[in-house]
């Protein structure tokens, strides 16, 4: 495996009762790139994500992250290696404040999470770092809000701040702009571009303008298989993709 490939899958397959949700996917993600996974509903994008982060076990195949075979690992261990995911439904801790949400991630990274005999005041040492991360995603004025009270777009921003607190080498974003209005989409797009400056991003995304705007590489999945791969130009001109994904036959 070449050194600039951070994540690679080989014949990745997940079958549910004989139906192959993901069938023999070979994926190669270059270090430092923004890689998008697109495809119609039911193409196996989310299943693919769940396999990569070990929330599902593959029926067949291998997953290699940073040269290490992670196929048999526990999800928490994968996260500890630096491959951290977001979820399609927004993944925040609803009844904790924005600050507490971010601190939970910092706390894991810096230890003392098992300390049941100490006051949680020791967590105040993470406040500065947490505030910096919160400022980064434009949530400063929401610091003491309970996460559940935030508007949808802000929740996604919080989720990204929490993920970034772990300083992961690679981010997996599951539909980061799903259900957002224009303004939020722009904000999140800019944020993704910014955080991708020194890390790798693999994302599932439906919004094609976001995809074309951000991605270096696009992989098109349909019925659990890779249909095409390349930059936006290549992929969007591929007749198979136009047929299967965009529903236009021969334009």
């Amino acid at each position: 495996m070449s050194a600039d490939i951070i994540l690679e899958t080989e014949d990745l397959t997940k079958e549910f009762a004989g139906f192959a949700a993901v069938g023999g996917v070979d994926l190669r993600v270059r270090r430092g790139s923004i890689h998008a996974l697109i495809g119609p509903n039911g193409a196996g994008k989310t299943t693919c994500f769940n396999l990569l982060t070990k929330f599902l076990s593959p029926t067949r195949g291998r997953i290699v992250f940073k040269g290490q075979d992670i196929t048999a690992m526990q999800p928490a261990d994968v996260a500890r290696l630096g491959l951290v995911r977001s979820f399609q439904i927004s993944a925040v801790f609803p009844h904790m404040t924005v600050l507490e949400n971010v601190r939970i991630a910092l706390q894991r990274l810096r230890g003392n999470s098992m300390d049941f005999w100490r006051s949680r005041a020791v967590l105040d040492q993470y406040n500065d770092r947490a505030m910096a991360l919160i400022a980064d995603v434009g949530l400063t004025e929401f610091t003491n809000w309970a996460a559940v009270e935030l508007p949808y777009g802000r929740k996604r921003a919080l989720e990204i701040a929490t993920t970034l607190a772990l300083d992961p080498e690679m981010l997996l974003l599951d539909e980061p702009t799903a259900g957002m209005g224009h303004e939020d989409i722009d904000r999140i797009s800019q944020l993704i571009r910014r955080v991708a400056a020194n890390r790798t991003v693999l994302m599932v995304e439906h919004n094609l303008s976001v995809v074309s705007d951000l991605s270096d590489t696009i992989t098109v999945l349909t019925r659990g298989r890779v249909l095409a791969e390349g930059d936006y130009e290549t992929v969007s001109n591929n007749p198979d993709v136009r047929e299967a994904y965009m529903g236009v036959g021969h334009a």
């Binding site: 982060t53 929330f55 999800p75 928490a76 261990d77 996260a79 500890r80 951290v84 995911r85 977001s86 979820f87 993944a91 925040v92 801790f93 609803p94 009844h95 904790m96 507490e100 601190r103 939970i104 991630a105 706390q107 894991r108 990274l109 003392n112 999470s113 098992m114 300390d115 049941f116 005999w117 100490r118 006051s119 949680r120 020791v122 967590l123 929490t162 993920t163 772990l166």
Partner: peptide, 26 residues
Amino acid sequence: RIIHSPFGEVLKAIRENEPRAISLGY
């Protein structure tokens, strides 16, 4: 003290959203 400790914070996070806590490496 247990409830209001760093450990207690993690327990709260687990109760609120366990898959997310796992995805953060817990």
